[in-house]
Design a protein around this nucleic acid. Structure first.
Lengths: 203, 203
DNA sequence: ATATTAATACCGACCAGTCGGTCATTATAA
DNA sequence: TTATAATGACCGACTGGTCGGTATTAATAT
């Protein structure tokens, strides 16, 4: 029988979610295995039935986190046709999805960034490709822009630089928002960002 | 005689620099006291003659790091008179000073951010005020903008939101640059950011 | 000058606590 | 009964911080 496979995967996911939860609160290197176990309401040893090590949890979590993000964004974009609209949903989804669904998890982003940046001189180099991920994001944006330029809706700007700026703004805004959630409303700020960015490049 | 005080301070600074160096390479919680000692070419015990704990080093380093940054920026701004120019130097100094002088230390920024964000539920709450620091940065930018608006050189925009965007862009660009330094030239990208931002608000 | 004393800087072996990971045992399911 | 899953006591490697002792420099006395 194979309900087991389902169960195993489900439980693995459960542990992962618990781990991400704890990671976000305490930081990854301040998180102890026992913390994860308790958060998942299981024994410490059980974790090792599903993950080979703490690093394994970290890397799996890392990928799950960004894969979900990726999918959410590219799905949202696919639903749109007009480059302007695509840019809009990209901004809105980036800022609001995290805001709404996973606000607890943003704390981890920082660790992921920190680890990802440092993984150059690190054993995790092969498992983490933050650089490549950002290249993908930039490419995604770039393609939207280039299509817009080709269609004549955008001015012929440097699409690569624009992509960097947009990505930078999104990351930076998330950062500020985590520090001070009451500072601005995510929906509003996303709207402003859309306006500003689109105004700057519209033909 | 009192050369001692000078020496002590100098040595404390030396240790601090060594610590920051190691922090940036390995991350703060992966840094061992012995690493710092070796980097400073002293015995481990000696560190405790100058700092009370690892956390003490971290907090002192944190403040030194940002105090230097603050001073550099506000000095550069004071030298300018025109709001447009002030904004320009703010952007250039923010992006390039770190780029030129302390590129090794950017890795720490991530830890500082991570710790700062998490210090809410943390014993370091009293020692780290990342939120307040960002409020100050925003205020600094805001005052430039408001003066520009009053003088009629800028359109009457929402100066607070603009400050958030600018800060976000700067942080985000640094982030991307750390991941992939060859992606863009800091001087150029700073210039582009200036153009874009100023074009967006010039009257 | 030189000896003596005092004060300070420096050191690394050591200690006590911690934590990732293991494994013998127990509970559960088939 | 047997196979599988779950568990937490246990282990050993590791590390922040301590402490007794040594080296170095300064102050004082002779």
């Amino acid at each position: 029988m194979c309900p087991k496979i389902v169960d195993r995967e489900a439980k693995k996911l459960e542990i992962l979610q618990a781990a991400l939860q704890v990671f976000s609160q305490k930081g990854i290197s301040n998180t102890k295995m026992i913390d994860i176990a308790r958060a998942a309401s299981i024994g410490k040893g059980t974790i090792y039935e599903y993950f080979s090590s703490k690093e394994d949890i970290f890397i799996t979590g890392f990928h799950q986190f960004f894969a979900g993000y990726d999918e959410m964004i590219s799905n949202a974009i696919k639903k749109q046709d007009h480059p302007s609209e695509q840019l809009k949903v990209l901004i809105h989804v980036s800022l609001e999805a995290i805001f709404e669904e996973q606000k607890d998890f943003i704390g981890i982003l920082m660790d992921f960034w920190a680890e990802g940046i440092r993984s150059k001189d690190n054993s995790m180099e092969d498992a983490i490709h933050l650089k490549e991920m950002y290249q993908n994001y930039r490419m995604m944006i770039r393609q939207i822009i280039d299509r817009g330029i080709a269609q004549g809706v955008f001015r012929p700007i440097d699409s690569m630089a624009f992509a960097s700026f947009l990505l930078a703004a999104i990351d930076g805004l998330m950062l500020q928002w985590v520090m001070e959630p009451e500072l601005f409303d995510m929906k509003q700020i996303a709207e402003s960002l859309c306006d500003g960015m689109l105004n700057g490049i519209r033909n």
